[in-house]
Amino acid sequence: MISFTIDGQMVEGREGQNILEVALDSGFDIPHLCYNENVKPYGACRLCLVEVSRKGRSRLTTSCNYPVLEGIEVFTTTEKVLRARKMVMELLLAMCPGSPLLQRMAKDMGINEVRFKKEDKDCILCGLCARVCDEIVGAHAIQFAFRGDRREMGPPFMEEPKDCIACGACVVVCPVNVIGMKEEGDERTILRWKRTLKMRQCKVCGNYFAPWFQLEKFREKAKLPKDYFDVCFTCRG
């Protein structure tokens, strides 16, 4: 185990863990948007900033991708941390002023007004959808495009993503909930990516339970028998 302190309190982490993970497990409250324990940390939103003191040198850093190290001292609420975090939050809110989550988080940090021109974007460019799609689903259907202030998240050429299996993992993981999914009759649509796929009907209950394309991909990957997905997850018991 690796021992270090967070705000003066002794905590322990395992090799390979990062500060944020240990801090959250130990009950510390560090705001974060682009972090999800199931995928690799990325460090895009910059909200989980903390001050880390190591070998006598102290610096601001994101806690989501900072590996736990023996003897480091982590501070989560210094003046510097709060000041930087507040501005990052204000920048995010100016970008997506309509997001209820951002509004709530900003309010909690004491941000009452946005000093920048408000934009009407909704995506905070945290990249969680693409990371889940790459690392967990393995479909690689979406990714960042362009750079700088023109950066966007989406399928190649912003056309219907041919590799998307409409599994909905991106929908679930999106912290600001702007991807969206709709099921109507035998069709499922991932709204943001405009991907519609036909769904398969369960031989027992008759419900449409998952897209054909998705089930075929899973069956191939896991080398399952042909009739494996004839029955839905519920009816299989």
Binding site: R46, L91, I124, G148
Partner: peptide
């Protein structure tokens, strides 16, 4: 710089833009 920032970090992308 706002054009050449990769756009990953909020602080750099939005900071240079603002």
């Amino acid at each position: 710089l706002k054009d050449e920032s990769c756009g990953k970090c909020t602080s750099c992308r939005e900071g240079t833009k603002r």
